[in-house]
């Protein structure tokens, strides 16, 4: 069974149809990239998979490990193992990053019928991962994303991913707002997470990221449809010729 199978997915915001029948199969252990011009529906696709209530699915299925995500609330999808690194992570005043992470991790553990981690084990759990990602303790003590730079926010998204250990990770415009050094650092984090039971879906309109995170498959999304799929060479084609050549 594929890890994720999207079948004839149609979605709209209000009356406007954005995705017009998307089909996509993702196997565990693979990395996929969706590229496309602005407004092609890339962000819609990622938001629909994680269940953002702003988007309505009018037709189709999103099967994750055989279960239809469309019928689940966002928190259940998350606890089933679907994660999205946000393009613009939100700020929450008064909530420390560490306590938020602890609550998220223990929510997932509760869903999996595991006992909650106590403070000591939790600290060990995050400390190890923060060190691997070269993230300083100070960020964990601060309020959730409040006053973080763009690069800090993105790096912390990868830390969340490492802490929660999801099976399917969507990286929505992970590269936006990052300089090359920050991009490298974030990519290291992603590559550390690559494992055979896990798959990645990268959303980008910029091929730089792909130098650091090597994709197995590249898909071109245009006007709500996947118009072409292939290997890394498709990304090179976009780089050289733009999206105009894809119909």
């Amino acid at each position: 069974m594929p890890l994720l199978e999207i079948k004839n997915l149609r979605t709209s915001i209000g009356k406007r149809e954005i995705l017009k029948g998307v089909n996509l199969t993702i196997e565990a252990g693979t990395t996929h990239v969706i590229m496309g011009p602005n407004g092609s529906g890339k962000s819609t696709l990622s938001n629909v998979i994680v269940g953002n209530p702003l988007y309505q699915v009018s037709e189709g299925e999103i099967l994750f490990k055989g279960k239809n995500l469309v019928e689940m609330t966002p928190d259940i999808r998350a606890n089933e193992g679907v994660f999205m690194a946000f393009q613009n992570p939100v700020e929450v005043e008064g909530v420390s990053y560490a306590s938020f992470l602890k609550q998220a991790l223990n929510a997932k553990r509760a869903y999996l019928n595991l006992p909650p981690l106590d403070a000591m084990h939790f600290l060990k759990h995050i400390k190890m991962r923060a060190e691997a990602l070269n993230i300083s303790n100070d960020l964990l003590k601060r309020f959730l994303n409040v006053g973080f730079s763009g690069g800090e926010k993105k790096r912390m998204e990868t830390l969340q991913m490492a802490v929660l250990e999801p099976d399917f990770c969507i990286l929505d415009e992970l590269d936006s707002g990052l300089d090359v050094d920050a991009l490298k650092e974030v990519s290291v984090g992603v590559n550390l997470m690559k494992e055979k039971q896990r798959a990645f879906l990268l959303i980008t309109h910029y091929e730089k990221l792909l130098e650091y995170v090597k994709p197995d498959f590249v898909h071109i999304l245009k006007d709500g449809r996947l118009v072409q799929s292939g290997g890394k060479e498709l990304a090179d084609k976009v780089y050289k010729e733009g999206f105009g050549v894809f119909e």
Binding site: V50, G51, N52, P53, L54, T73, P74, D75, R77, A78, N79, F83, M84, F86, P89, V90, V92, F100, Q103, A104, A107, K108, Y111, Q160, L164
Partner: peptide, 16 residues
């Protein structure tokens, strides 16, 4: 809505 959705995407119920 953005704040709620972000936290729900991390596995918290709407109430949490």
């Amino acid at each position: 809505e953005d704040q709620l959705f972000y936290l729900e995407q991390r596995g918290l119920t709407e109430e949490q």
